[in-house]
Each structure stands twice: as structure tokens, then as C-alpha cells.
């Protein structure tokens, strides 16, 4: 070490160069630099705003029925038109969007988090932890999810959407968890994990700090897919009358009802379907951008 460098080091410690270049900031910075990320994030934010602030600007609520307008096309009075019952499609769509967005995003997050945790812990600790966790995973894998959800549907009454989210998530995570477990086992042999162990980093922290971030590409893609999967599962459950119970609505019930009248009253179907497509698209954009932001090698690829 030359003297000049030593001096440099001291100079640095005198100055206030305590800027933190931690991972969180770098990832956030990279996410918001990518046009995809900004677009996806903006659209998602707009959707949420529409879903939760929208009801304030229209004078109809989703339970109201306008007995002067049955199955009317869009007009200044009813922006998205009305249903056969006289219900306002705009108000209904917003209400359904609230449910679907929350259910879809939450279920996806919960299921991916569950998959990551179970898989990583099973793969990292092996032994008894692995046996217990893998057994649970296998058990849930063989349960017929749709049937269980259908049987439990009476429980998802008014205000029980949180339970619904948990149940949806509970049947989405198993396959990913198996993949995560396998990848963790191979990651565990890598030198940087060894390095952390020899440094004295506690095992649980190694899982969170080294194992999971290195699986982030997989997890982000999985979460993105799960959003669509959760929304679609909810939609199909609701279509069969199991999921969200009337008078509450969701994208699923709306699409189910709208599809019957779609040919001669397109407004009952196309607005909901369009918003569903836009939502899934935005989630995918965010997922892509997040994956690139997490992956340090992605910068050079483009």
C-alpha cells in the first residue's frame, strides 16, 4: 500500500462519503429508469385510482338499479351503459375491479412468498425441516383445489374476502416451492453462500439475504404469472357461482353475466374484459421490469 492511497483512505473517512449504495436503492433506481417499469407501474396505479376513487365521481352505486334504463348503451347518464336489471355497468365494473385487483395481487404475493419461504427453508436446512415442509407441499399438491374451494365457498360470505385470498394462495404455491427448493440446494454449494457462513452470518439471514435474492428472477416471474392465475381462478370460481357472492361482484361474475349478452349488448362485456386484459398486461410489464432491475447482468443485454 503506497502512502498516497493511505492518505486517500483517510481523506475519505474524513469527508462525508457515507452515501449508501445498498441493493434496495439500486434496484428501485433501475426499476424506475426502465420505460417498461414506469409504464406498467403508472397503469397499475391508474387502475387502483380508478377502482377506489372512481365510485366518488359517479352518482350510481353498484347496488343501485335505474328503472328507467334497461340494457341501454353508454350515454352521458350511464357511462358504460346498463344491464338488463338496470344496474350501472360503470359502477359495477369499478366494484368488481376493486375486488379482483386486491384479490389477484394479494393472492399472488402471498402464494409466491409462501413458495419462496417454504422452498428456501426446505432446501437450505434439509433434514427434518425439509421432510416436514416437503410432506406438506406434497399433501396440498394432491388435494383437488377447485373442489375444496367450492366446498368452502359458503364461508366466503360478505366481508370474508381475506379468507378467500388466503385460500386461493394456498393452492397456488406448491409447484414453485418445489422449484425453489431444488434451486436452493444447488445455490447452497456456491462459494458466496460458504463465504457468508464462514463470516458468521446466521443461517436464517443467509436465506433472506443471499438465497432469495438470487432466485428473484424466478420469483418475480412466478408472482406475475400468479396474478393472472389468481384473477382467472377467482373469475372461474365466481363464474360457477362459488367465489364472490352476490350482491358483491367481481370481474369473474361480471364477465360471466356479460358473456351472455355480449353479442347484442357489447358494453356489458367488453369494458370488463378490456380492463382485465389491461390489468394483466400492466402486471406483466411491472414483473419484467422488476426482474431486469434485480438482475445485474440484464443491463448489458440491452
Amino acid at each position: 500500500m503506497t502512502l498516497s492511497q493511505e492518505e486517500l483512505a483517510e481523506e475519505l473517512s474524513d469527508g462525508a462519503t457515507t452515501r449508501v449504495h445498498s441493493r434496495l436503492r439500486v434496484v428501485a433506481g433501475r426499476f424506475f429508469r426502465s420505460p417498461q417499469g414506469i409504464a406498467g407501474f403508472a397503469v397499475l396505479a391508474a387502475m387502483f385510482l380508478l377502482a377506489f376513487a372512481g365510485p366518488l365521481v359517479t352518482r350510481w352505486s353498484y347496488t343501485d338499479k335505474d328503472f328507467t334504463a334497461f340494457l341501454q348503451p353508454p350515454s352521458p347518464d350511464h357511462w358504460f351503459g346498463t344491464l338488463q336489471t338496470g344496474a350501472d355497468v360503470f359502477a359495477l365494473t369499478l366494484r368488481g375491479m376493486q375486488k379482483s385487483l386486491v384479490v389477484g395481487l394479494l393472492a399472488a404475493l402471498v402464494s409466491t412468498a409462501l413458495a419462496a419461504l417454504v422452498g428456501a427453508f426446505a432446501g437450505y436446512f434439509l433434514g427434518w425441516t425439509d421432510r416436514v415442509l416437503s410432506w406438506t407441499t406434497d399433501l396440498l399438491l394432491v388435494l383437488p383445489a377447485f373442489l375444496v374451494l367450492a366446498i368452502m365457498s359458503p364461508l366466503f360470505g360478505a366481508g370474508q374476502w381475506a379468507l378467500f385470498v388466503v385460500m386461493l394462495a394456498l393452492f397456488l404455491w406448491m409447484v414453485t416451492s418445489k422449484v425453489v427448493r431444488g434451486m436452493t440446494i444447488s445455490l447452497k454449494e456456491r462459494e458466496f453462500i460458504q463465504a457468508a457462513r464462514y463470516m458468521g452470518v446466521p443461517p436464517v439471514r443467509i436465506v433472506f439475504r443471499h438465497v432469495l435474492p438470487n432466485l428473484s428472477s424466478l420469483l418475480v416471474v412466478d408472482a406475475t404469472l400468479n396474478v393472472s392465475a389468481a384473477i382467472l381462478t377467482e373469475t372461474s370460481l365466481s363464474y360457477f357461482g362459488f367465489g364472490i357472492q352476490p350482491p358483491d361482484v367481481s370481474f369473474g361474475t361480471l364477465i360471466a353475466d356479460g358473456s351472455r349478452t355480449a353479442t347484442y349488448a357489447p358494453w356489458t362485456f367488453w369494458f370488463v374484459a378490456g380492463l382485465l386484459v389491461v390489468t394483466v398486461l400492466a402486471v406483466n410489464l411491472v414483473g419484467d421490469a422488476l426482474r431486469d432491475a434485480f438482475d445485474p447482468a440484464a443491463k448489458r443485454a440491452r
Binding site: 475519505l12 449504495h21 439500486v26 462459494e191 458466496f192 446466521p202 439475504r209 443471499h210 438470487n214 445485474p296
Partner: peptide, 30 residues
Amino acid sequence: ASLDPRMTVHDIVAEPLRTHGRRQPGRRVA
């Protein structure tokens, strides 16, 4: 192979410091 590819150099060098209970490793890392 021995540096976590998903961590910035700052986080890598700061890791032992954080592990052994140092709150503000920024200056020491530099």
C-alpha cells in the same frame, strides 16, 4: 463465485460489518 452476484459491492463489503453489529458501515466500506 464467492461474491453474491445479486449484491452491490457496497452490500458485499458491508455484510461482515453488519453481521457483527455495525450500524453505519458506509464510511468503513469506502
